[in-house]
C-alpha cells in the first residue's frame, strides 16, 4: 500500500493489496463492538455504593454523554465504510508508472495484471478515519490484551493462528493510523 497526500488535504491509499483490502473491510465490524472505548467518567476505583454523588454523575453520563459519544464514534466508522464502498479497483493499465516494472509485483502468477484498490479519503474524513481505526484497535486490545506493538511483533511467530490474525490486524490498522497522523500533524502546523 502506498499513501499519498492530495492537493485538497485528503489522503489516497493506493495500491492497496487484496489482503490489505480484506483487513480494511473487516474494520467496521470490529469497531462496532464498541469494546475498549473508556466511557466511565470516574474510573473503577470510585465506588458508587458509598458515594451518592458518583452514582448520580454516572447516571447522568450514561444518559446524556455516552449516547452522544457513541453516536460520534459510529459516525466515524460510517464515513470510513462509505469511503471503502467508493474505492476503485485498479490495475497496471491505470498506472503508467507500473508498466515500467519496478519489481513491485505488477503481474500475478498467471500473467494477468496485478489488481489493487485505490481509496480516497477526503480531507474532512482523515480524522474520522483515524478515530475509526483507533476504535478497532481499542476493541482488539480489549479482547486480546495485545500490548505494545514492538513486543507484539516479536511474539507473532509463537501465537496461535487466530490470535496472530488479530494481532496482524492490530498492527496494520496502527500503520494506517500513523500515516494519517502524519497528515493530521501537518494540518495542525506541527
Amino acid at each position: 500500500m502506498r499513501v499519498g497526500v492530495r492537493e485538497d488535504g485528503g489522503v489516497v491509499l493506493d495500491r492497496v493489496a487484496p489482503v490489505e483490502w480484506v483487513m480494511l473491510r473487516e474494520l467496521p465490524e470490529i469497531a462496532a463492538s464498541g469494546r475498549g472505548v473508556a466511557l466511565d467518567p470516574l474510573g473503577k476505583e470510585v465506588d458508587e455504593t458509598t458515594d451518592y454523588d458518583a452514582a448520580s454523575l454516572r447516571e447522568d453520563w450514561s444518559q446524556f454523554v455516552e449516547p452522544e459519544l457513541r453516536s460520534h464514534f459510529a459516525g466515524q466508522v460510517a464515513l470510513l465504510a462509505g469511503d471503502l464502498e467508493a474505492a476503485e479497483t485498479m490495475d497496471a493499465s491505470d498506472d503508467p508508472e507500473s508498466l515500467i516494472g519496478d519489481g513491485d509485483g505488477e503481474e500475478r502468477g498467471d500473467g494477468k495484471p496485478q489488481r489493487w484498490m485505490r481509496i480516497v479519503i477526503p480531507a474532512d474524513h482523515v480524522e474520522p478515519w483515524y478515530g475509526a481505526l483507533n476504535q478497532a484497535r481499542l476493541a482488539l486490545e480489549a479482547s486480546e490484551r495485545l500490548g505494545p506493538a514492538l513486543e507484539l511483533i516479536e511474539e507473532l511467530a509463537e501465537m496461535d493462528p487466530r490470535r496472530r490474525r488479530l494481532a496482524v490486524l492490530f498492527l496494520f490498522y496502527g500503520g494506517v493510523q500513523e500515516a494519517l497522523l502524519g497528515r493530521m500533524l501537518g494540518m495542525s502546523g506541527e
Partner: peptide, 11 residues
C-alpha cells in the same frame, strides 16, 4: 493505554 500514539495524545 497501549493503543493511543504519543504524538496523537500531544495533539
Amino acid at each position: 493505554d497501549p493503543v493511543n500514539y504519543m504524538h496523537y495524545v500531544v495533539l
